[in-house]
């Protein structure tokens, strides 16, 4: 049997392993057949928000045992060992772990869209079970390991060499994708989203320099790279470098080119009151790349510390690495004054969990005085 990386002993997974957890509740969602990762992330968050009691309120919960094997996942009451839920492994669509919360998504059956809709497009009902455990990540990894073991068996039974499929998967073509990205959490947290009203004189610019968020960004829009000292934007005290600018006077800038965003900011020059919608973000972002082995391709190219291309669906993209960003740190080591060859060496050697701190290269050049900002 092929060894599959994960927290469990391979043989144990065939028989089944048990994890203690607290069952918080279940909900049901309707989903496309194979939704993209961003949709799955939103679904997991939706399920958690529906089931989890708001902060400060009592959360009803039941002590359970989660039985995980390469055939099934069962939820048993901890005291009587009675099966509350029993799902064949192949009907589990995916799992999500968010801090100490684990969400298990089981496909129920097909539903059809109402006849009123143009295409009779098939939809799945998915049952979402939400659990709490300090070991949520470990349990998710164990279920992920069971997925991989079961999938390898399935391939072998179908006459396919799992090793060959594994090679394709590690290049990000398909397969058991681990998507790790804090951006969605950050962007969907309403506390980070603000409306800022800026007062200024007629004909005065806002006093902001903008850069692109970079290809690979979950939220493609302009980023504040610098603020003119004493300018209206800085005087407001509500903006900082790194903030995403999502709208100006109610007009969305998301998905527009940098030139179009800059033009929209120039257009408000004649006004005395400007409303900006922003998402507060730190100037430096961290990508976390899960790379079990150094033989696995990182999936991006670097030139003089700047990320210049990204493999679609690769582990780097899934970890939040962005084109046009300068690498500031690799696993806690500053690389700002490091020669290219050494950066490549650090990246080649890095595995398990690779933490990469980065910022838009243009922001970096402005902050280090290599370039003069063009204030709008």
């Amino acid at each position: 049997l092929q060894e599959v990386p994960g927290p469990c002993d391979h043989e144990d997974l065939l028989d089944g392993v048990i994890f203690g957890a607290k069952y918080l509740g279940s909900t049901q969602l309707v989903s496309e057949r194979n939704p993209p990762p961003s949709t799955r992330m939103a679904q997991a968050r939706e399920a958690m928000d529906r089931v989890k009691a708001p902060d400060g309120e009592t959360q009803p919960m039941t002590e359970v045992d989660l039985f995980v094997s390469t055939k099934r996942v069962k939820v048993l009451t901890a005291d009587s060992q009675e099966a509350m839920m029993d799902h064949a492994l192949q009907t589990i669509s995916y799992i999500a772990d968010i801090g100490s919360v684990l969400v298990l998504m089981a496909r129920r059956r097909l539903a059809r869209r109402p006849a009123s809709q143009a295409h009779s497009h098939r939809l799945y009902k998915i049952l979402c079970h939400v659990f709490h455990s300090e070991d949520a990540q470990l349990i998710a990894q164990a279920i992920g390991q069971a997925f991989t073991v079961a999938y390898s068996q399935f391939l072998r039974e179908s006459g396919v060499d799992p090793n060959q499929v594994g090679a394709q998967q590690s290049q990000g073509a398909a397969g058991p994708g681990h998507l790790h990205n804090g951006d969605l959490d950050h962007f969907s947290n309403s506390e980070n989203c603000r409306e800022v009203c800026i007062e200024k004189r007629r004909g005065e610019g806002l006093g902001v320099a903008l850069v692109e968020s970079g290809w690979g960004s979950l939220l493609p829009t302009a980023v504040i790279a610098n603020l003119l000292h004493g300018g209206p934007a800085e005087r407001s005290g509500a903006l900082s470098i790194g903030d995403r600018l999502t709208a100006i006077n109610g007009t969305s800038l998301v998905g527009l080119s940098l030139a179009a965003c800059q033009a929209a900011v120039r257009e408000v020059k004649s006004q005395t009151l400007v409303t900006l919608s922003i998402i507060h973000c730190p100037p430096v972002t961290t990508a976390i790349i899960r790379r079990p082995h150094t033989r696995e391709q990182l999936g991006f190219c670097v030139e003089d510390g700047i990320i210049c291309s990204l493999l679609r669906g690769g582990i780097a993209e899934r970890g939040g690495v962005r084109v046009g960003h300068r690498i500031i740190e690799i696993n806690g080591h500053s690389v700002v004054a490091t020669p290219h060859a050494r950066i490549i060496e650090l990246l080649t050697e890095a595995h398990t969990e690779v933490h990469i701190k980065m910022m838009p290269a243009a922001t970096y050049r402005l902050l280090t005085g290599q370039e003069q900002p063009v204030y709008l």
């Binding site: 799955r40 999500a96 089981a106 496909r107 399935f154």
Partner: peptide
């Protein structure tokens, strides 16, 4: 906190219509 998704690779091999009742 970070959100991690682990997709079951069997999903894409499942015949439409199958699933837990």
């Amino acid at each position: 906190s970070a959100l991690t998704i682990t997709v079951n690779p069997m999903e894409k091999h499942e015949e439409p219509g199958r699933g837990e009742e």
